[in-house]
């Protein structure tokens, strides 16, 4: 068993687990943050994407022990002061989610995209969110939401 100390959404946590425990399972089971979803456990679907030290990464193909000392943000950490993040607002406005299962990973991925490329064109948006599979939306609403959120995030910097 190993001890994992980390900071998630600004809160310090500590847990003990086997070294083989996947970070996604640790976040969901040990920390009780079930917003991060698991859809494939081999790095393809992107539902489990979280911010790892400020950069989007798959939590299903990382070990919990590797997050010792790290700073994570999950979908639960997007909302501030009881208000939706502008990206969340845009997702709602543009019907960028249906079942909502891909949504946590999609939000984190889109946020990372907009941080690295604050005004992407449509092709860049599509390429960026290609990292996450969505079976419900055909992606149209998501593309619209990310496009709409981009200038708001730039203005809010």
């Amino acid at each position: 068993m190993v001890t994992v100390r980390l900071n998630v959404n600004g809160v310090a946590h500590e847990g003990r687990c086997e070294p083989r425990k996947l970070l996604a399972d640790f976040i969901r089971e040990d920390l009780g943050l079930t917003g991060t979803h698991v859809g494939c456990e081999h790095g393809i679907c992107g539902a489990c994407t979280i911010m790892f030290n400020g950069e989007a990464a798959r939590s299903c193909i990382m070990l919990a022990v590797q997050a010792d000392g790290a700073e994570l943000m999950t979908v639960e950490g997007l909302m501030r002061d009881g208000k939706l993040h502008p990206l969340q607002e845009a997702f709602r406005e543009h019907h960028a989610l249906q079942c909502g299962f891909c949504t946590p990973g999609m939000l984190i991925t889109a946020l990372d995209l907009l941080r690295t490329n604050p005004s992407p064109n449509d092709r860049e948006i599509r390429e960026g969110i290609s990292a996450v599979l969505c079976r419900c939306t055909g992606y149209q609403g998501i593309v619209n939401a990310v496009r709409a959120a981009a200038p708001i995030l730039v203005a809010g910097r």
Partner: peptide, 9 residues
């Protein structure tokens, strides 16, 4: 190479 979240790691 894959996607940005893959390249992160």
């Amino acid at each position: 190479v894959g996607h940005l979240p893959i390249r992160t790691r």
